[in-house]
Computed example of a mutant assay.
Amino acid sequence: MPNKPAPALPSHKAIIARNGGPASLGRKINVDPNTVKGWNRLDSIPAPHWHALAEANAATLDELAAAAARRIAA
């Protein structure tokens, strides 16, 4: 049986989009939508908000960490 490639992990921008955009994600985690718009623009969700995202089932901690690591490495 051939090995399947691991699914690509999303960027922070993709995580925001997958959750309905800045306004929707902001409501999910009780953060001002304008703040989330800034995260989207920078493609960077600050680590202090990761647990709120995980608790809201908006993203996993692994996804968030991998997206941050790729951004730093770029």
Rank of each mutant, 00 (worst) to 15 (best):
T35W: 06
P10M: 05
L9C: 05
L53H: 00
V36N: 02
I15W: 04
G20P: 02
R70D: 10
T60F: 03
H12M: 05
R71E: 10
S11A: 10
L42P: 03
A47T: 15
M1R: 13
A52E: 11
A59I: 01
G38S: 12
L64N: 00
R70F: 06
V36C: 04
A65Y: 08
W39F: 11
H49K: 11
V36K: 00
D62I: 03
E55A: 15
L61I: 07
P10W: 02
L53W: 01
W39I: 03
D62C: 01
N34C: 05
L64H: 03
G21L: 04
I29W: 05
P2F: 05
D32L: 07
P2Q: 07
A58I: 02
L53Y: 01
A65K: 10
A73T: 11
R70Q: 11
E63P: 00
H51K: 12
P5Y: 09
A17V: 06
A59L: 02
R41S: 09
A59M: 01
A54F: 04
K28Y: 08
I72Q: 14
R27A: 12
G38V: 08
N3H: 12
K13I: 02
L25M: 14
A54M: 04
E55S: 14
G26P: 03
H49Q: 13
T60D: 05
W39G: 02
S11C: 08
G21S: 08
K4P: 07
K28T: 11
A8E: 13
S11V: 07
P22H: 00
T35L: 15
A56K: 06
A47V: 14
D43S: 06
P2H: 07
T35K: 11
N40V: 01
H51R: 13
T60H: 06
K28F: 08
G26F: 01
K37E: 06
A6Q: 15
T35S: 12
P2D: 06
K13M: 07
H49W: 10
T35N: 15
G26C: 01
A67M: 01
I45N: 05
I45K: 04
G38C: 10
A23D: 03
N34H: 10
L64E: 00
K13V: 03
A54N: 05
I29Q: 06
L42W: 09
K13E: 07
I45M: 07
P5K: 12
A8N: 13
I15P: 02
R70M: 09
M1W: 09
S24Y: 00
I15D: 02
W50E: 03
A59F: 00
A69K: 12
K13D: 05
W39R: 06
S44Q: 13
I45D: 01
R70K: 13
A68N: 07
H51W: 09
P48K: 13
R27Q: 14
R41K: 14
T35Q: 14
D43P: 04
T35M: 13
G21T: 05
A47P: 10
V31H: 08
P46I: 07
P2K: 08
D32P: 02
A65C: 11
S24G: 02
A14Y: 02
A17D: 10
A17H: 05
A8K: 14
D43V: 00
A52F: 09
H49N: 11
K37M: 08
T35P: 08
T60M: 04
A14R: 02
L25R: 08
P7H: 14
H49F: 12
G21F: 04
A14W: 04
W39E: 04
P10K: 03
R27H: 11
A52H: 12
T60Y: 01
K13L: 09
